[in-house]
Design a protein around this nucleic acid. Structure first.
Lengths: 107, 107
DNA sequence: CAGCTATATTGCTATAAAGCGATATAATAG
DNA sequence: CTATTATATCGCTTTATAGCAATATAGCTG
């Protein structure tokens, strides 16, 4: 649940693809390594990283182990970004205020 | 400006600390390696990574090269996360609706 | 010019990570 | 129990990265 694990997990493009795929619903390991893509052990390793980071969870149905998103831990990211977002919005507001002031002057 | 570079840059805790520090305003290389911490070449390397990722920019004042945040590229992150946020909010809304329905039934 | 300060670059070592094939484990089917 | 399917783990190679000391470069100051 550390910020570190979450960011490290998201740093890999394959893992981000996996997460995006899971937006459409759960998927099994074999679903994900389909044809010509990465091999099963590779996928399994990525899934473990995502699980340790708390970004996904796994069910067990027969031999299948479908994974699903665990969005609560994704919010940790959002929380970290908040101050930056705030500063970004702040600058936007300033610009807006400035342009308002300008148009006022123009009248 | 690739998502990949941005995520990779954020994967390192030292680089995240640098960004957080820059929230309070610009800072030079020497500001950042202060005492007992990381050495100057290490900091410079991190700064380069952040710059390539488009997360910071550098000015030049005399020999100093103060760095400042470049928040526009941080928004790329936010954009990537949006679908997840939406799904998260969606679930929340569902819960809320459910609880509304329950309390209605209770009356 | 010489010397100083701030930063960048180079070359190195150590550690971690991605990907793979081979193999082990787990659950089901017959 | 045997075979099959789904997934996990192991051992390996290759590539990338963090950190450092040493050195180079750039701008200022005298």
């Amino acid at each position: 649940m550390s910020l570190d694990l979450v960011f490290a997990a998201l740093a890999d493009p394959t893992r981000r693809e996996i997460l995006v795929r899971l937006l459409q619903g759960e998927a099994t390991v074999s679903d994900m390594c389909d044809p010509g893509g990465l091999k099963q052990p590779t996928i399994s390793k990525h899934l473990k990283v995502l699980e340790v980071a708390g970004l996904i969870a796994s069910d067990q149905r027969a031999q299948r182990r479908p994974r699903r998103l665990q969005l609560a831990n994704m919010q940790v990211l959002a929380a970290w970004m908040e101050p930056f977002q705030r500063q970004w919005d702040g600058r936007f507001d300033q610009l807006e205020a400035l342009s308002r002031a300008q148009s006022q002057k123009g009248e």
